[in-house]
Amino acid sequence: MIKRFFKFLFKIVLWLFILSIGFVFLYKWVPVPITPLMIIRHFEKSDVEKETFWKHDWVSIDAISKNLQLAVICSEDQNFLNHNGFDIKAIEKAYKNNKEGKKLKGASTISQQTAKNVFLWPERSWFRKGLEVYFTFLIESIWTKERIIEVYLNSIEMGHGIYGAEAASQYWFKKSADKLSPLEAAAIASVLPNPRVYKANPASNYIQVRKAWIIKQMDYFGPLEYVNKDGKTVKN
């Protein structure tokens, strides 16, 4: 009986492993239609709010302003192009700050956030964190950096019921994502720490300060260029 149970358990784990790799390969080319967070947020709404469905319009990376791509990298993960999914220095710094009793700081990279948003749920637990590490490793191994940022910018929450760059651009600035100016891109990137509370437009004093900081970081960063796994530079 016990032997049968472990055999059954092994088969389940094996199939989950195969399916996870299959989905990561699928999403290397296919747009992500829905994420667990979108579903969770929908069921958190009141009956009246549920009548207005979430806004999510997938667009290719070519239809997303380089300004927004650069703004979120400068805001969320400035080592994105150089690390393999995990920013070890940021993790060590966050651990040191937290140990000293300073304000809690996370060290999640864009790759980790993408793995969490697309494949997992927003729960704080070691089990979920372990799965996040696993999926981060997969997407960094199978996708390019350009694909990771494309999926990230099409999937993350950018306002109350607003998901992805195109929906956010239309909602906050009444224009398509490829037309965003540096200031508009910085405004959207500024709300990412808490998109259901902060507003990109009109911006509060806090968002104005964050916008200015992000713009300065964008100037320091310079031109944004992706390098594929074969070492070739990609310009979109």
Rank of each mutant, 00 (worst) to 15 (best):
A90L: 06
R196I: 13
Y95F: 14
V234C: 09
I12P: 08
Q208R: 15
N228T: 02
K235L: 10
P202H: 05
V59G: 10
G130M: 11
T233H: 11
K89F: 11
L183R: 13
I61V: 15
V32G: 04
T52D: 12
V24F: 02
K7C: 08
S75C: 10
E76M: 04
Q78S: 09
F221L: 11
P223H: 06
L9D: 00
D219A: 15
K232A: 08
G22M: 12
K129T: 05
F43N: 08
L153K: 06
S60H: 14
H83M: 03
R210F: 01
D47H: 10
G231N: 00
K50I: 03
T136F: 02
V24L: 05
Q217E: 14
V24E: 04
W172R: 01
E157V: 12
L104H: 14
K11T: 09
Y171A: 00
S176W: 08
F80M: 05
Q112L: 04
Q113A: 01
W172L: 00
F23Y: 14
K96N: 14
I2R: 13
K7Y: 10
V227N: 01
S181C: 09
V30K: 07
E146A: 12
A200M: 03
V118D: 00
R147V: 03
K174Y: 12
F80L: 05
K179N: 14
F127M: 07
T114I: 04
S46Q: 08
W172Q: 02
Y206Q: 10
N97A: 12
V234W: 11
V191H: 02
G161H: 07
L68W: 02
P195M: 11
I139T: 00
K7S: 10
P33H: 10
T136V: 04
L16W: 09
Y171D: 02
S141K: 12
I142D: 04
Q69E: 13
N84L: 14
I34P: 08
L16I: 13
S60N: 15
F86C: 07
G164T: 00
F137C: 09
W121A: 01
D77M: 05
R4Q: 13
G231V: 02
R4K: 14
F86I: 15
G164I: 04
D77W: 03
W54E: 09
I91V: 14
E76R: 02
S75W: 05
S169F: 07
T233N: 11
R41D: 11
T109N: 04
V24I: 11
I110Q: 00
K129Q: 06
L16K: 09
N67L: 10
N205I: 12
L104N: 14
T52H: 11
E100T: 08
L120P: 01
E49H: 03
T233S: 12
K102Q: 15
